Measured scan of single mutants.
Amino acid sequence: HHHHHGSGALAALHAEGPLAGLPVTRSDARVLIFNEWEERKKSDPWLRLDMSDKAIFRRYPHLR
């Protein structure tokens, strides 16, 4: 159930192989992290948004 927010940013994801479903670039990863943060913020208003490279690598090590 993907609803768009204002920016309408869509992340490019790997379609197949071992990385299927994972973001292709760091900016794609940022979109995913932001979208998930927006969702989680509803139940956790104090949740901090962390889109640093460090956060991205921790989450998606293949982007190193």
Rank of each mutant, 00 (worst) to 15 (best):
H4I: 13
A9G: 11
L13N: 04
H1T: 09
L49V: 07
A15K: 15
R40I: 07
W46H: 09
R40N: 13
F34G: 02
W46K: 14
A20P: 02
E39M: 10
I33Y: 02
S43R: 12
L13V: 13
R48K: 12
V31G: 04
R40F: 10
R48L: 14
Y60H: 01
W37F: 06
H4L: 14
F34M: 13
F57S: 06
L49I: 06
L63F: 03
S43W: 11
L22F: 07
S27T: 09
G6A: 13
A11V: 10
L10W: 06
R64M: 11
V24Y: 04
G6T: 14
W37K: 00
H2D: 12
N35I: 13
R30P: 00
W46A: 15
G6N: 13
H3C: 10
P18Q: 06
R58A: 10
K41G: 05
L49K: 01
S43F: 12
D28Q: 02
R30A: 08
S27N: 14
I33Q: 02
A55D: 04
Y60T: 00
H14Q: 03
A15P: 11
F34N: 04
S52M: 01
D28L: 01
G21K: 02
H2P: 13
T25A: 06
H5K: 11
L19D: 04
S7D: 11
R26F: 14
H5C: 12
W37C: 01
A12F: 13
K41L: 10
V24Q: 05
L49D: 01
L10D: 10
G21N: 06
S7A: 09
H62S: 02
L47I: 14
H1K: 10
L49N: 02
K41W: 06
S7W: 13
L32C: 06
S52D: 03
W37S: 02
D44L: 06
A15I: 14
D28N: 02
A55L: 11
E38P: 01
V31E: 07
R58S: 12
E16F: 14
I56Y: 01
H1C: 11
H14D: 02
L32P: 00
A15V: 13
K41T: 09
M51F: 07
R48S: 07
R48D: 09
S52C: 04
A20V: 12
K42W: 06
N35Q: 15
S43P: 04
N35K: 15
G8E: 12
A12K: 13
E36G: 03
R48M: 10
D28W: 03
R64I: 15
R64Q: 09
T25K: 06
F57G: 08
R59P: 01
R30S: 03
N35R: 15
H3R: 03
G8A: 13
W46G: 10
R30K: 12
S43C: 11
E36P: 00
S27E: 15
V24D: 01
S7F: 14
D53L: 13
G6F: 11
H4M: 14
W37T: 01
L32D: 01
D53K: 08
K41V: 13
P18H: 08
S52A: 03
W46R: 12
H1N: 11
K41D: 06
I56C: 03
L49S: 02
H5L: 15
A9K: 15
F34A: 07
H3K: 10
G21S: 04
N35T: 09
S27F: 09
F34S: 05
L47R: 09
A9C: 09
R58V: 14
L10M: 12
A55Q: 09
W37R: 01
P45A: 08
D53S: 07
S52T: 07
G8I: 13
R26W: 12
R64S: 12
A29P: 00
W46L: 14
A55T: 10
R26H: 10
H14F: 10
E16G: 11
D44H: 11
G17V: 02
H62W: 02
S7M: 14
R26T: 13
R64Y: 14
L10S: 15
G17K: 05
G21I: 03
V24H: 04
W37N: 01
A9E: 12
A15C: 08
F57H: 05
H3D: 15
P18G: 06
L32N: 02
A11H: 05
S43L: 12
R48T: 12
K41H: 10
V31L: 14
P61Q: 03
A12H: 14
Y60S: 00
E39P: 02
S7T: 15
G8M: 10
D44W: 10
M51E: 03
P18S: 09
E16V: 13
A29C: 01
H1P: 08
P61T: 01
G21E: 03
L13R: 04
L13D: 03
P18T: 07
E39T: 09
D53H: 06
M51R: 04
H62E: 01
D28E: 04
A55S: 07
L47A: 13
V31M: 14
A9L: 09
H5W: 15
E39I: 11
T25R: 07
L19Q: 05
G6K: 09
R58L: 12
A9P: 11
T25S: 08
I33P: 00
K54G: 08
A29F: 00
V31C: 07
N35P: 00
H1V: 12
L63N: 00
R64N: 13
G21Q: 05
L32G: 02
D50H: 04
W37D: 00
L19W: 11
E38Q: 11
L13P: 03
H4Q: 09
A15N: 13
A20W: 07
R40D: 08
S7K: 10
I33L: 13
K54C: 09
L13T: 10
R59E: 07
L47Q: 06
P18C: 06
A20H: 09
L22V: 03
W37G: 01
L22H: 04
L47M: 11
V24T: 02
P45N: 07
R58T: 14
H2Y: 12
E38A: 13
E38I: 10
G17Q: 02
I56N: 01
E16R: 07
M51N: 05
P23G: 00
E16P: 05
A12Q: 12
H14N: 04
L32I: 14
S7I: 13
E38Y: 13
K54W: 12
A9T: 15
A55H: 15
E36V: 04
L19S: 05
S52H: 03
D53W: 05
F34P: 00
T25L: 04
V24G: 02
F34K: 07
A11K: 04
G8T: 13
M51L: 13
G6P: 15
A29L: 00
L32Q: 06
N35M: 13
H4C: 11
P61L: 01
K42Q: 12
S27V: 11
S43D: 11
L49C: 08
H4G: 10
T25Y: 06
P61E: 05
H5F: 14
L63S: 00
H3Q: 10
V31W: 13
L19T: 04
K54V: 07
D53R: 09
H62K: 00
H1R: 05
N35H: 08
K54E: 15
S43T: 15
R30Y: 15
H2F: 15
A12V: 13
E39N: 08
T25F: 05
E39V: 11
A9I: 14
E36N: 04
I33T: 02
M51Y: 06
R48A: 09
H1I: 13
H62C: 01
M51A: 06
G21L: 05
D44M: 12
D50R: 06
A11S: 06
S52Q: 03
L10P: 14
L49E: 01
S27Q: 15
L19V: 05
A11E: 08
R40S: 11
G17I: 02
A9Y: 15
E16A: 05
L32R: 02
H4N: 10
S7C: 10
H3Y: 08
G21V: 04
R40G: 14
R30V: 07
N35V: 12
P45W: 06
H5R: 15
F57V: 08
G8S: 13
A20K: 15
R58F: 12
F34R: 10
A9D: 13
A20D: 05
W46Y: 14
E16N: 11
W37V: 02
R40A: 14
E16W: 13
L63W: 00
S27K: 15
P18R: 06
R48N: 10
D44V: 07
R64G: 12
E39Q: 15
F34C: 05
H3M: 07
K41R: 13
R64K: 13
K42N: 06
L63I: 04
H4V: 12
L13C: 09
R40Q: 09
E16C: 09
H4Y: 12
H3G: 13
L47K: 07
V24R: 09
H62I: 00
L32M: 05
R59F: 06
R59V: 14
I33E: 01
E38C: 10
S43V: 14
E36H: 06
R58Q: 15
W37Y: 12
